[in-house]
């Protein structure tokens, strides 16, 4: 369970999150929608531990213990995963090598045995197939020359390999056509499990047709201004954000 309590965050002296509260129980999928500049991406970066975001108040608890003092790699080992809005290109680092390094780094931190090359390949193949990822893509450097859809599928592949307990999807739908969106959504849905929760950040209701959330929150001016069930997303789609932003 992830429990965000009264979280305030600044970057470069500018307040972005202002006393945000959000609790996501195990097994649930929550969606956050909100206008540009509401603080959606900031929330995702702060959860993953990016250092240039300064937490000025509040706390983030994962299964009851604070993660604020943990480094990004420690959070990953604790089970937090961020699917990036803009996955980063890393020339010169080959996909397979990156994935293996990542899986084994997490296993090592958790005190588990590192996977041998062959066992890792087996694991990768099974996940890769489900997401329709070609072998050729895994021979390339990380995200280099990938299409928008390939980059997002790659994020989901990493999620499938790392098996997090809490995954944040930051605008994973942006820039995807409907076919790519379905593949990504199917990938996410197949990972839904009683011991895993998701935070889906999006601009658009469309994604939520495919990944049906338990709760929808509206984020405006750095805090949650309204929460409701999946129908809230539809309401937003027809009415726009203006009313909710005013209310904040």
């Amino acid at each position: 369970m992830i429990d965000i309590q009264n979280l305030s965050v600044e970057i470069d002296g500018k307040q972005i999150l202002d006393g945000l509260n959000l609790t996501i129980p195990d097994g649930e999928v929550h969606a956050i929608m909100g206008p540009n500049g509401a603080g959606k991406s900031t929330l995702s970066y702060v959860l993953a531990g990016r250092e240039d975001y300064v937490v000025t108040g509040g706390d983030i608890l994962l299964n009851g213990s604070s993660i604020l003092e943990k480094s990004p790699e420690e959070r990953a080992a604790a089970g937090i995963f961020l699917a990036f809005q803009y996955p980063v290109e890393i020339p010169g680092v080959q996909m397979t090598n990156f994935l293996k390094t990542s899986v084994n780094a997490i296993r090592k931190q958790r005190g588990e045995n590192e996977l041998e090359a062959l066992d890792f390949l087996k694991l990768m193949k099974s996940r890769q197939k489900e997401l329709g990822i070609a072998d050729e893509m895994l021979k390339r450097p990380v995200n280099v020359g990938f299409s928008g859809g390939e980059k997002k599928r790659n994020e989901i592949l990493q999620m499938a390999l790392l098996e997090p307990t809490f995954a944040v999807l930051d605008e994973t739908d942006s820039g995807l056509d409907i076919d790519a969106l379905k593949i990504v959504a199917d990938g996410v849905n197949s990972l839904r499990a009683p011991n895993r929760s998701f935070l889906v950040i999006t601009h658009y209701q469309r994604l939520l047709d495919y990944i049906v959330p338990d709760v929808v929150h509206i984020l405006a001016k750095g805090k949650i201004v309204k929460s409701g069930d999946a129908s809230l997303a539809l309401e937003l789609e027809s009415k726009g954000y203006a009313d909710f932003v005013e209310a904040a």
Binding site: A48, G49, R50, E51, D52, S71, P72, E73, R75, A76, A77, F81, L82, F84, P87, V88, E89, I90, F98, T101, S102, V103, A105, I106, Q109, Q158, L162
Partner: peptide, 17 residues
């Protein structure tokens, strides 16, 4: 810093990243 954060968010310790 951005690729460094990306790698670390995947569990790879800073030094290794």
């Amino acid at each position: 810093e951005t690729p460094l954060f990306y790698l670390r968010s995947r569990g790879i310790p800073e030094r290794d990243a």
